[in-house]
Design a protein around this nucleic acid. Structure first.
Lengths: 155, 155
DNA sequence: CAATTCTTGACCAGGTTAGTCAGGAAATAT
DNA sequence: ATATTTCCTGACTAACCTGGTCAAGAATTG
């Protein structure tokens, strides 16, 4: 689960798209570009990946643009980020290491930590749909109550 | 809560330091460099920030190195990342935007999302201490049970 | 039908920023 | 004084973001 600015831009654009495709009309990228202040070229690159990922459908020609492939309630934020960012094969602690913890032995001490954090992020972003974002039903979702966090500083 | 590779390196180095400072000896960066395969120069930059953040103490000269400022049980992973990464003043959705959601009105639709995600990450990483990492007590901490996630695809 | 306009699709080139590393200077213990 | 180690400054690399060009498909208009 890579968490880059590119993923944030993609979610912003998708939220804009979901909010403005009333009665299923196609939304041109030029609109999103002016509203969200993202360059048109960059949006084209992002939506190319989103289309290949099956998250949006494109309609060419006048009156064309992009549409959500599925309703906003079924489009999860995690899917958007995964479609836009590179696959980033497993939590590699060190980018180009040959004998790292990527494939062979569990060498890196922090490997479990990043894997678990990635899972945490993925679970969170999978629980949020585009509809949640545009309806602002996001706040107050954090606070993992089931964890072993025994509140180390307050106690 | 910025989550970059720099923060990961810092945690790896701190975990190594915590694991090898038996009976409070100072650990030179050259050791950590060879063990963790991080360049010495980069480690120096990271530990300079960690020292300013009050997480480690330095001892110069021969036999010198770094020591944890507090025991590993009281050093939280979140503090390490916060010390190393830039403050990243509030969840800025767009880096250099003037009329963005940084200061003025709540313009950006996804602002709440990133803020909540940052909180989620912070809560998680605050619940993990360096001692937890080197003792491998990290797995199985994710799974936010208190959230509103009603399992949208399985149902 | 033919021309025009609107929009995606694919591509490349440049500028900015974060990430990473190398070298040398300052400090301290022996 | 010399070796060891932290500290500081500069340079290189890759990722991010923007801008531009050109082609392809679809609706509108004559």
């Amino acid at each position: 689960m890579k968490l880059s600015t590119k993923g944030r831009y993609a979610v912003m654009a998708m939220a804009d798209l979901a909010g403005h495709n009333i009665d299923g009309r196609a939304v041109p990228l030029a609109e999103i570009s002016s509203r969200q202040e993202i360059s048109l070229s960059y949006l084209e690159q992002l939506f190319a990946k989103l289309r290949r990922g099956g998250l949006v459908k494109s309609v060419r020609g006048p009156g064309g643009g992009y549409r959500l492939a599925r309703p906003a309630e079924e489009t999860r934020v995690a899917d958007i980020i995964l479609a836009v960012d590179e696959p980033i094969a497993a939590t590699r602690c060190r980018p180009g290491s040959t004998k790292g913890c990527t494939g062979t032995g569990a060498r890196c001490v922090t490997h479990d930590l990043w894997e678990e954090l990635g899972r945490q992020i993925h679970v969170f972003l999978s629980s949020v749909s585009l509809a949640d974002v545009i309806e602002k039903r996001v706040l107050g979702r954090a606070q993992p109550c089931g964890t072993v966090a025994e509140n180390r500083e307050a106690a």
